[in-house]
């Protein structure tokens, strides 16, 4: 089941594997309990480890570890990155939150 929210969620991310690489930001265009799609004009490459901060339906998620599964550059020069959350405990927490959000009537995709 997939529904759409009225706006994308802004997210801040830093790169875990590369020292001194500046933080970036973008939007989560899709989210599910195992991962998300991140849209950003900062370069994102397959295999990179990220730490994300974002807020979803009033709940803040800080230092969420994720890895870029795949990344593609679109015609505008933006990167669409398919990311996977690497913390299993966080996945469970996020899944429960997404379920509660959907039950409350706010639209977000939920997949397992």
């Amino acid at each position: 089941m997939k529904t759409r929210a009225p706006r994308n969620v802004p997210a801040r991310f830093s790169f875990q594997d590369v020292l001194l690489r500046a933080e970036g930001w973008g939007h989560l265009t899709e989210i599910h309990s195992a991962g998300a799609e991140l849209l950003s004009y900062f370069r994102l490459c397959r295999g990179e480890a990220l730490s994300l901060d974002f807020e979803l339906a009033g709940v803040s998620f800080v230092a969420v570890r994720a890895r870029v599964l795949s990344s593609a550059k679109d015609a505008d020069g933006y990167f669409y990155a398919d990311i996977r959350f690497t913390d299993h405990e966080f996945r469970s927490r996020l899944g429960a939150h997404l379920s509660a959000v959907l039950a409350g009537g706010i639209d977000v995709e939920i997949r397992r």
Binding site: P10, A11, R12, A22, W25, H27, F42, F54
Partner: peptide, 20 residues
């Protein structure tokens, strides 16, 4: 000034994008 935290805050306030 490049500031990721402030950039995300501007996005939340309604900016379409923050240009670094």
């Amino acid at each position: 000034q490049r500031d990721a935290a402030r950039s995300v805050e501007l996005l939340r306030l309604g900016a379409q994008e923050v240009i670094s």
